[in-house]
């Protein structure tokens, strides 16, 4: 902890590695945890961003086509192109169930069974969309506290060392505190993108869920020529 330069010149130019060269085991553990959180958060953000964006885009394109054509068969054929779209998936699921019932010649309760298939797929789609997103919320909520814990621990040990040296000058106190604060900075650095990502995905997923809920009945009606 003691190799931190006390002047601003050194503070500005020393690297993080140098700054942390003497940090304690607890601070290292905290930083490692936060680093892991940050890595996973960014991976989820990047992965989900592509997934949700594609789903929204393809759902919109499929809906446009669905309302353009009157035939569900054509819509099903077209839906092959929109396999990542949530709405097209729900539609495909209902259509497959509808065709299966037709092939078996079962007309009793067929509407209810197709509706059930659509609902099941809608639920599965919601789960798929929402998967991994809660982790972002967890990181957003806990990372600052984990960082704070590291800081408190670092300051605690720093003050202990200061007490042993029996000196309380700024040059003695500042480096330890400066190091300890890195944990808080790391916690915030992990939490901020996670919270932003969580809010973004929550909003987008809500839109998709609402669309699924809204258009499920239209899909069902289309199978029984009521559209």
């Amino acid at each position: 902890m003691n190799n931190i330069a006390s002047t601003s010149m050194f503070d500005s130019k020393l690297g993080i590695i140098t700054l942390l060269s003497d940090a304690g085991a607890v601070v290292y553990f905290v930083l490692a945890t936060l680093l892991l959180f940050s890595i996973v958060s960014w991976a989820i953000i990047a992965f989900k961003f592509g997934y949700v964006r594609k789903s929204l885009k393809e759902s919109k394109a499929f809906l446009d086509y669905f309302f353009e054509v009157s035939s569900v068969d054509k819509a099903f054929t077209k839906s092959e192109e929109y396999r990542s779209g949530s709405l097209s998936r729900v539609f495909r699921s209902g259509y497959i169930e509808y065709q299966a019932l037709n092939c078996k010649g079962e007309s009793r309760h067929s509407r209810a069974r197709v509706a059930l298939a659509i609902k099941r797929e809608a639920n599965a789609e919601n789960k798929r969309l929402a998967s991994l997103v809660p982790f972002l919320a967890t990181v957003g909520n806990t990372a600052p506290f984990i960082g704070l814990f590291g800081t408190v621990w670092g300051i605690m040990t720093s003050f202990h060392s200061i007490g042993l040296t029996q000196s309380a000058s700024l040059a003695v106190v500042a480096p330890g505190i400066s190091e300890a604060l890195i944990a808080t900075a790391a916690g915030l650095a992990a939490a901020i993108p996670a919270v932003m990502g969580y809010n973004y995905f929550t909003q987008k997923i809500t839109i998709i869920e609402r669309d699924i809920e809204e258009f499920s009945s239209d899909f069902l009606d289309s199978f029984f020529n009521e559209l």
């Binding site: 130019k13 020393l14 690297g15 993080i16 590695i17 140098t18 680093l35 940050s38 890595i39 996973v40 960014w42 991976a43 989820i44 990047a46 992965f47 592509g50 997934y51 991994l132």
Partner: peptide
């Protein structure tokens, strides 16, 4: 396929974090 994509992004995130963390050391 989704899992593979996620692991790919995980690897990218690890790489980017490595770059960001080593930047203060390398830039001087």
């Amino acid at each position: 396929y989704s899992e593979k994509r996620f692991y790919l992004w995980l690897a990218v995130a690890v790489l980017l974090h490595g770059v960001v963390l080593s930047a203060p050391y390398v830039l001087p």
